Computed example of a mutant assay.
Amino acid sequence: MDVLVYLIIGCEIGFWVLLAAGLGTRYLLHQKRLGLVLLACVPLLDAVLLAAAGTNLARGGTAEAVHGLAAFYLGFSVAFGHTLIRWADVRFAHRFAGGPAPVKPVKGTAAYRHSLWVEYGRVLIAMAIAVAVLLVMIQFLAAPGEAGELWNWVKRAGVVAGIWLAAGPVYGMFERPAQTAGAQGGPTARS
């Protein structure tokens, strides 16, 4: 297996370890500054992965699927990383620090559809970052004539964005809010 594959796996594990360590330090050990420092280290993992993928190509490595995967990982990590940290922070604060309960929009409501479009915006940002990284690899790092696999990943970005659009916001436009038991003819508060 390619070293970059191990590095991608390591970055994903590192993300969750830093997230857990940062939130645990913040809420369980009550050391907010140290917790913030640990959470601020998360983007360093992305920098390490980007440097490793670029260095591999610059030193004559063959452009392979793992380079495209690294670009996609980087794009999603940048676009969704802060959101995942915020999601976990709310739940950790609720569980361990008496914070408010997490609020999730009810399916089929305007707030739910809005959240799907916001999420899709993040997908577009992720794909834009991935494509930009791929284009830099193609233009400056890949050996001439060896960029075909990277171009395939550029095409995949469009496919991912299209599938996410159909399965997310478009599908969400047709979902209806769940009805309460009283509205469906079931037992009501007065029965």
Rank of each mutant, 00 (worst) to 15 (best):
V136L: 11
V5P: 02
Y112Q: 06
R86Q: 12
Y6Q: 06
D46N: 11
V3Q: 08
P105R: 12
I129R: 00
A51G: 14
M137T: 05
A183E: 01
P43I: 11
A88W: 07
C11F: 07
Y171K: 14
G54H: 09
D89M: 05
I8M: 02
E64V: 09
A93L: 06
A51W: 15
V159Q: 13
L38E: 01
A47M: 10
W151T: 04
F174L: 00
I125V: 15
A126C: 09
G185I: 01
H82V: 13
L134I: 00
W151N: 07
R190S: 08
G185A: 00
T62A: 13
V170L: 05
G162W: 03
T25K: 00
A111R: 15
R176D: 06
A71C: 08
V5L: 15
L50Q: 08
A88M: 07
Q179Y: 00
G68I: 04
V131M: 10
S191E: 01
L69Y: 10
A142L: 08
T55D: 13
M137K: 08
W16R: 03
G22H: 01
T109D: 00
G81C: 04
L36Y: 07
T62D: 12
T83A: 13
Q184F: 00
F80C: 05
R113C: 07
L150T: 05
W151R: 14
A79K: 01
Y73W: 14
H114M: 11
A128T: 13
T83I: 06
L69M: 15
L116D: 02
G60W: 11
E149Q: 14
L28T: 00
V133G: 11
V17G: 03
G148Q: 12
Y112W: 15
G162N: 07
Q31S: 09
W117R: 15
E146D: 14
L19N: 02
S115E: 13
A166H: 07
L28K: 05
A51I: 09
C11W: 05
F96Q: 07
K104L: 12
A47C: 08
G81L: 07
I163D: 07
